[in-house]
Write a protein that binds this DNA or RNA. Structure first.
Lengths: 258, 258
DNA sequence: CTGACAATTTTGGTCCGACTATAAGCCGCA
DNA sequence: TGCGGCTTATAGTCGGACCAAAATTGTCAG
């Protein structure tokens, strides 16, 4: 807990340029958030005192405190008078918060964590597809169809294609008419986004994902919950397989529960 | 913008007594958070300007801003220069955040939302029980057994009993060895806690929940993923039934997906 | 020497008041 | 009519002061 202050003129703690958009406290939170999630500060560590740290970052104490409040709201840290601001154990982190996800994927993503996310997808999304098949209305189907068309037109290699993919999954979650699941959409969507980029980075996209998505759409349109659930299950499994191989561990699958 | 300040001594804007524990900005966030979640401020509404609002609450602008930062971190509001602080649409709320859950259950809980939470439980917990059956170690089983014993000793009518119940479900989630699911434990646990209290409030506890839990434990101990999943499925269904009848809508169930 | 009590001091919590930066909305010009 | 600059309200940032709680240290009685 020491010479962080000296490093300021270097690169590490340089004040983010915050070109018109993000506010100062926001970029501070981002910086510290990434540092925590990536392990620079381990759980249990005590951050330097407010005065020291804010001076090291060359920001006012107020801005720094606001950043800490945001981190505290996401369960990353906890500050108590006299005790200082302490990094909380990983179990308390709000790992499904979109910002935290962003920070987690800012550096090299932890492979185990990616696997965990896919495991969660494999649980939630098939069920969601089933509910969607029962509850979707004309509008949902229209959005799904449109997203699918856009995925066809652009490929997943383009930003537009990835947005379409995300819209597709979002629309399914929304069609469940379940707020709690819709919240997971933001998280899962973010995760999908990031992992998709990793697949691209490995610049080997062995599989054409359109047919998988099309099967899910057909089942939902037909109102067949069981088929939709199964089709989504296949989709997620294949996506994991692609991602895993892109991350260097081919052959990974998730054992199915009957 | 004036005599709200005079009303402070009344009831509405009374500063929370914060008897040694919660910090001031924390209680502000709590108050505004409850107001938003319970609909006092509707999505799209603009909050009064920082000076006005902080004066009305009789706190400094700094404390108010820190509270707003926390709310923003949970997706409840968004503030932009000149535009003010606006309540975000419900879809952006981090509904699974433990604090937000707390605020949601501070007033009369929305029945539809409770149903949605149970639907999510019905998706996640059986799957989690399945994973737990495959991955649990001796320690997990010990904790599960202990929680179960405590549930038996105290009933769910006591605080200790409810804690034991929560520990039981927590232990299962933890045994999945999946961080993403463990995060949901905090959320789901909170939801279970609140709804259990509602069941108590209706002071009719028709069913003895111990056997359901015992079956889940047995299956996990036996390493039988399928049985554990099924047993948990039953447990959640019955819990929903009890809760629904306590809330005045008996007979509610969640259709199963094969 | 030991343990409980008190003073110290560190650190977060709160407040104040001033200034800056941003962008919504208005106004005037083309 | 529509564009572009200007006004201005509002959030953002600053720094400096004081308060409150708690961990540490020191002190004193037993």
């Amino acid at each position: 807990m020491t010479e962080q202050g000296e490093e300021v003129d270097g690169t590490a703690l340089e004040r983010a340029p915050r070109g018109t958009g993000r506010r100062l406290h926001g970029s501070i939170a981002h910086k510290i958030g990434v540092a925590i999630v990536s392990g620079t500060y381990a759980p249990g560590d005590i951050l330097s005192s407010e005065v020291d740290f804010s001076e090291a970052l060359d920001v006012s104490r107020g801005a720094y405190r606001e950043a800490i409040r945001a981190l505290a709201a996401k369960g990353l840290v906890e500050s108590r008078p006299k005790a200082g601001t302490r990094v909380l154990p990983r179990a308390r982190w709000n790992l499904l918060d979109p910002d935290v996800l962003t920070w987690a994927f800012a550096g090299e993503p932890d492979e185990q964590f990616v696997r965990n996310l896919f495991e969660l997808r494999a649980v939630v999304e098939p069920a969601a597809a089933g509910f969607a098949a029962e509850r979707r209305d004309r509008d949902d189907l229209r959005i799904l169809k449109d997203s699918l068309a856009r995925m066809r037109r652009h490929s997943l290699a383009t930003e537009a294609g990835r947005i379409a993919d995300r819209d597709f999954h979002d629309a399914i979650l929304r069609a469940t008419r379940n707020d709690a699941m819709m919240v997971l959409a933001a998280s899962i969507g973010a995760a999908v986004s990031w992992t998709t980029q990793y697949k691209q980075r490995a610049r080997a996209l062995p599989r054409n994902p359109i047919p998988d998505h099309a099967r899910v759409y057909e089942a939902i349109a037909a109102g067949d919950a069981v088929a939709a659930s199964a089709a989504m299950r296949v989709l997620v499994d294949l996506a994991l397989e692609d991602t895993a191989s892109a991350m260097g561990k081919p052959g990974a699958t998730i054992k199915a529960l009957p």
